[in-house]
């Protein structure tokens, strides 16, 4: 992000940057950067909080009239707290039927969650679901595709479901997981508690016994077994650090970094 600001300024357009990782801004030295003490994925601090967001923007844009050399300022206000893992529990429970296939469990989960997802989509008037190429209503196809890969370990062939997939294998598995997470997040948003779950609370839920978490871990094991550098990269993109015990996301030797700020 910081380097990009310098490249853009070469055309004479001034930049004001928000910075999420101060150490990286210190290294790259964008012209004007406001470091914000917010979580990754929350660069303006708080969703559906226009006044909070506007204050952040005023602080960042205000640097245009105060900075006279490359400057990093620290934003002094913390974002409103989201629910920690210990403070949030999913209001939906899933009956665990260990004798059924992971695909059947996954399809049962999305079927159970579908009414709440629909409710949230209707309230918002939009969905983020569909980066895989799936249509907004093709959650069953995405679930069957992801479950099928978890069961078969086939990391080469595109799933047979009737979707015009937007990615090749195995990268598609990473985005299948994202579409599924998007759907799950929509579902729980229909049952809001006192505070929305934070990143860790969401991950703890997914990886503590949902079929989605179990399928992700099974696919990660297949990617580990494949052992190519690209498969290991994709594994690092599939599961947040700490939730897969078969290897770190940061062991990949490929050129593209699996994780990072932006």
């Amino acid at each position: 992000m910081g380097a990009l600001a310098n490249f853009i300024e070469r055309a004479g357009v001034a930049t004001a940057s928000i910075s999420l990782i101060r150490e990286q801004s210190e290294a790259v030295r964008p012209p004007r950067a406001l470091w914000v003490p917010f979580a990754l994925g929350r660069p303006l601090g708080s969703a559906a909080d226009p006044q909070f967001q506007k204050q952040v923007l005023r602080a960042a844009l205000g640097m245009l009239s105060t900075a006279t050399e490359p400057t990093i300022e620290d934003y002094p206000v913390e974002a409103p707290a989201e629910a920690q893992p210990s403070e949030w529990a999913c209001p939906v429970s899933f009956a665990v039927a260990q004798d059924t296939s992971i695909t059947a469990r996954l399809v049962a989960e999305v079927t159970r969650l579908a009414p709440w997802s629909s409710e949230t989509r209707a309230a918002r008037g939009r969905t983020l679901f569909g980066v895989t190429g799936a249509g907004p209503e093709q959650i069953q196809e995405v679930a069957r595709a992801f479950g099928g890969i978890a069961e078969s370990g086939n990391l080469t062939d595109l799933p047979a479901e009737s979707v015009d997939w937007a990615f090749a294998m195995p990268l598609l598995v990473r985005h299948l997981a994202d579409d599924l997470r998007t759907f799950y997040h929509e579902a729980i948003a229909a049952q809001p508690g006192p505070a929305a779950p934070n990143h860790d609370a969401l991950n703890d839920w997914i990886f503590s016994g949902t079929a989605l978490g179990d399928a992700s871990l099974a696919i990660a094991a297949h990617l580990t077994k494949d052992n190519s550098s690209y498969a290991l990269l994709v594994r690092g993109l599939l599961i947040p650090e700490g939730y897969y015990k078969g290897g770190s996301a940061f062991e990949s030797a490929t050129g593209a970094t699996p994780q990072g700020d932006s």
């Binding site: 979580a39 990754l40 994925g41 929350r42 969703a47 559906a48 918002r124 969905t127 983020l128 990473r174 994202d178 997470r181 998007t182 997040h185 929509e186 948003a189 929305a196 779950p197 990143h199 969401l202 991950n203 690092g236 993109l237 599939l238 599961i239 947040p240 650090e241 996301a249 593209a256 699996p258 994780q259 990072g260 932006s262």
Partner: peptide, 12 residues
Amino acid sequence: ISTNFDRSAFQQ
């Protein structure tokens, strides 16, 4: 591609 942030706040 990163999994070190979630999309829930953007969805909202």
